[in-house]
Amino acid sequence: MKTKKIKASRILTYAVLIGGVLIAVFPFIWMILTSFKTNAEALSIPPTIFPEKINWEGYKHVFTGLPFVKIYLNTIISAVIIVTAQLVFCAMSGYAYARINFPFKNILFTATLAVLMVPGTFFILPQYRIINRLGLLNTIPALFLPNLFSAMGTFLLRQFFLSLPQELEDAAYIDGCNRGKAFLKIMLPLVKPGLVSLGILTFRFAWNDLMWPMVVNTSTEKMTLAPALSYLQGQYVTDFPGVMAGALMAVIPLIIIFAVFQKQFIEGVAHTGIKG
């Protein structure tokens, strides 16, 4: 009796989980299938599931309609710069707030935390004006400048540094390390999970962000992928294979990175959730 009940609940568990998986992957599958269809196939009623044969028209349209290679590069360059800068700067400030005493520390830290409380959209108008005044609209630096500095990253890494025992650092000083060496050689390697979490979350943000890059860079030559897709959708209103091909190419690099680093991705999200 009891085993029967357990068996039934197991079956139900898997049924729900697999149902969920289907819903999770269906849009991706539909994206892939549509991207290889001809436009006539995509617009057929009732919709066909599989393309009759693999058709690259949609992909060609993306490359003729937009400087897509350049857009790819813009996105990669901007994302890599943002991630690198945040890791370096936030590791420094996170360590300082966790371990060093300096004047106005509490005020500065509270002010940093306050930035965390404000929605990102709030800052966009003056940020736009600063970029404009610097004559940087429609340039690559416009894409990354305000995002090099992160209150969230500072806070996150501070939490990781705080969780390390003070004795560890003291031991390094006794062994003749100076502060810089202790930071680089002892402390930094120990907060690697924090650095990985921050790096991954930041990369995901930089790769996918829409409003900021769309506002500062309107020239297609200087766009990133998210605004480029919106542009593509506006240009190719009824060219669904083309639009889907663009969308697929935009998401594939991140999915590959995810496939390689999935453990770190998932742990990174779980970590930040717990650390809060």
Binding site: A24, P27, F28, N208, A226, L229, L254, A259, F265
Partner: peptide, 18 residues
Amino acid sequence: RVIYFLPAITMSVAVSMV
């Protein structure tokens, strides 16, 4: 876990288009 996490890492712009 990997499959369920997939929508979360994908660009919401691309996802919205599909």
